[in-house]
Amino acid sequence: MDLSRFPAYKHKLIYDFILAPPKYPLMQSYWFGDVGDGRCLPFAGDANAIINRIHSISTQMEIFIPLDWNLAVDCGICSGRVDYLARLQTVSIAAAERSVREHYAGKDAELLQMVRTLDEMDTVINLLSERAADWYMVRHPAFSRKYRRTPAHLLVKTMREKSHGALGRVAGEIEQLGETRTALAKEVSARANDVLPNTSALIGGLVAARLMANAGGFLPLSRLPASAIQVLGAKTALFAHLKTHTPSPKHGIIFQHRRVHNAPRDIRGRVARVLAGKLAIAARLDYFRGVAVPEFLQLSQDRIDTICKGDQK
């Protein structure tokens, strides 16, 4: 635990300070005004102006004196305790609302929810399909999925057409969910192309969006080192590796990119590593420039192509 920045004497300093205020004039800035040296400069302005003021004040904690609400009365800001709290609450609620709004105004806030909804829809569709198939098999004792090449969605279609009552309706709902999922995936991809142009160009919009969601947002992704991007989404394997020395994971989410999962096993790790390296740069470009950088993309594609051919380290 790092306590070096907050040694006990500093706190003693603060106690001393409260008991024996310094002789030299020292302004303290509070939300309602600046106080010190026997004077008070009340701050005039609406809640918005006060919020801007709060954000602009930089408090030095070493010489900070916690505010005494009586100062606000002396300052002529409020008439008494109840009035003080009411005013402070108005300001604080407005400030909190503004912070929340600003947080959600980021380009990534909605994309994050879209990706998570998409992944959860996949889970739900799979679970429901499995359950419906089990139900269908009870009704059709001779039915088996073995040696059939029927894709899951066609099986659901068959179940809907051949089943009466609730089972047919459930199968219908699964189909509907599937359509919504496809539409959502397209939106995610389009938005990722817009928000993460370089990352999306390298790895596809959908996977780029998943990387961003897994990192926890746009800024966190742009701050990740390549080694972390490489194993993003392989948490279980990574912690198993750290704890019990199983082999380290070669890839996480980026495995979903064809270049990685189509690569021959023996160079797959290398492809993942190089791709992750380029993705780390791409994410930074996306965050700090916000536009596609064709030269970078061309060089990166060439480099990854070379690795995929497997004739270079």
Binding site: S29, Y30, W31, R53, I54, I57, S58, T59, Q60, M61, F64, P66, L67, D68, W69, V82, L85, A86, L88, Q89, V91, S92, I93, A95, A96, E97, S99, V100
Partner: peptide
């Protein structure tokens, strides 16, 4: 915020607790 609106004595502050300097002007 919704809870604070219904009560007169809750002052909500959206800030990082590791940075008291950023909300020091509000807290007594």
């Amino acid at each position: 915020i919704e809870v604070a609106r219904r009560r007169k004595n809750i002052i909500p502050i959206m800030a990082d607790a590791t940075r008291p300097d950023l909300y020091a002007p509000l807290v007594e």
